[in-house]
C-alpha cells in the first residue's frame, strides 16, 4: 500500500505545481509547450497501457486522437453543442470504437495486431480526408470554440494549461489505482503469461479488450482537448506519423511506468523546441532547419542505445 500513498503524494505535489506554475511562468510560449506535452502525454498514456499491460503495440493510436478531436470539434463547431457534452461523447466514442475494432482484431497479437491497427489508423485517416461534408476534408474545420464553465472560458494558455494537466493528473491517478487493483493484478498476470493467467481463471481476451477500450478513451480525450485548444483541426496531424511518434514517446519514456508516457512526451516536445532555439545559435545562421531533423533522429538513436529501457528506467513491478 506504500506505493498508493507515494503516488497520492506525488500527484498532490504535481497538482500544486500545476496550479502555481502559470503565475511563476507567465510566458504563453512555455505554457503552450507544456499544454502540448500534457496532450501528447495523455495520448501516449493510453498507448502505454496497451503496450504495458496487453503487451501489444498499436500502430494506429493516432486514430483515437483524431476521433476524439473530430467528434468534439464537429459537434461544437458545426452543431453548436455544449463543449463538455461533446468532450464526454468524444471520449466515449474512443472507447466504443476501440471495442468495435478491438473485438475482431484483438484476436491477433504481435506483428499481426500491429499491422491491423496500422491499417485501422490509415482507414480512419482516409475517412477524415474524404468525408468532407462532415469533417471539412483535408483543409479542415475552423471555429471550434474553447471549453467554458458559465462565463469562464478556457481560452488562455494558462487556463488550458491547468485544464490539460489537471486531466492528465486525474487520469494518472485513476489508472494508477487501476494498476494496483484486483483488475490490475489480473492484467499483470496476463502480461506475464497469458496461459498461466487463463489457467488461474482470468479471462485474458476480455481484459485486454478492456485495456484497449480504456486506452481509446484516454487518447480520444486528449484529441478532444486538442481540438478545443487549437480551435482548428485537419487530418494531417493525425496520420501514421503521429501513431509512430506516440510509440516513440512511450518507449522513450519507458513502457514500465505510467509516468514514462509523460516523460517521453516531454522529452520529444522539449527536444524539438530546444533544437529550434539552439541550432541557429550553434551554426550561426538561421538557415539551419534542415539539420534539426538529422540531429533529432541521431539523439533518438543515442537515447535508445544508452537507455534502452527508457527514461523512467526499470521494469514494471510484477
Amino acid at each position: 500500500m506504500g506505493s498508493a500513498r507515494r503516488r497520492a503524494l506525488l500527484l498532490v505535489v504535481a497538482a500544486m505545481i500545476v496550479a502555481a506554475l502559470p503565475a511563476a511562468v507567465p510566458s504563453r510560449y512555455v505554457l503552450s509547450t507544456l499544454v502540448f506535452v500534457a496532450l501528447h502525454a495523455l495520448a501516449a498514456l493510453g498507448l502505454s497501457l496497451v503496450m504495458g499491460f496487453a503487451g501489444q503495440v498499436s500502430l494506429g493510436q493516432a486514430a483515437f486522437f483524431a476521433i476524439g478531436a473530430y467528434v468534439s470539434g464537429v459537434l461544437t463547431a458545426s452543431h453548436g453543442w455544449n463543449g463538455w457534452v461533446a468532450l464526454a461523447l468524444a471520449t466515449a466514442a474512443g472507447a466504443v470504437t476501440a471495442l468495435a475494432v478491438g473485438g475482431p482484431i484483438f484476436r491477433l497479437s504481435g506483428l499481426l495486431l500491429a499491422m491491423a491497427t496500422l491499417g485501422f489508423g490509415i482507414i480512419v485517416y482516409y475517412v477524415l480526408v474524404n468525408w468532407s461534408d462532415v469533417t471539412g476534408g483535408p483543409s479542415g474545420l475552423t471555429g471550434i470554440p474553447p471549453l467554458a464553465i458559465g462565463g469562464f472560458r478556457f481560452d488562455t494558455d494558462a487556463r488550458v494549461f491547468r485544464l490539460a494537466w489537471g486531466a492528465l493528473l486525474l487520469v494518472l491517478w485513476l489508472t494508477g489505482n487501476l494498476v494496483d487493483s484486483r483488475v490490475g493484478r489480473a492484467l499483470r498476470a496476463v502480461a506475464a503469461s497469458e496461459a498461466a493467467a487463463e489457467a488461474a481463471g482470468i479471462h485474458a481476451a476480455r481484459l485486454k479488450l478492456g485495456v484497449f477500450a480504456l486506452a481509446g478513451a484516454i487518447t480520444a480525450l486528449a484529441g478532444g482537448l486538442y481540438a478545443h485548444y487549437v480551435a482548428f483541426i485537419n487530418p494531417s496531424p493525425f496520420g501514421f506519423a503521429y501513431s509512430v511518434e506516440l510509440v516513440v514517446m512511450v518507449v522513450l519514456g519507458g513502457v514500465a511506468s505510467l509516468w514514462g508516457a509523460v516523460l517521453g512526451a516531454a522529452a520529444v516536445v522539449a527536444l524539438v523546441e530546444i533544437l529550434r532555439a539552439a541550432l541557429p545559435a550553434l551554426t550561426a545562421s538561421h538557415g539551419a532547419a534542415e539539420y534539426e531533423i538529422v540531429v533529432f533522429g541521431l539523439i533518438l538513436m543515442v537515447f535508445m542505445i544508452f537507455l534502452p529501457a527508457g527514461l523512467s528506467g526499470g521494469r514494471r513491478p510484477a
Partner: peptide, 26 residues
C-alpha cells in the same frame, strides 16, 4: 542493443530513418 527489447530496437530504427531522411534533405 542486441540484448534490449524488440521495442527499443524498433525505436532505434525509427531514429535512424528520421536521421537518414534529414541527411537526404540536407
Amino acid at each position: 542493443l542486441r540484448r534490449a527489447s524488440g521495442l527499443s530496437v524498433l525505436i532505434l530504427t525509427i531514429g535512424a530513418a528520421i536521421a537518414l531522411r534529414g541527411a537526404g534533405l540536407v
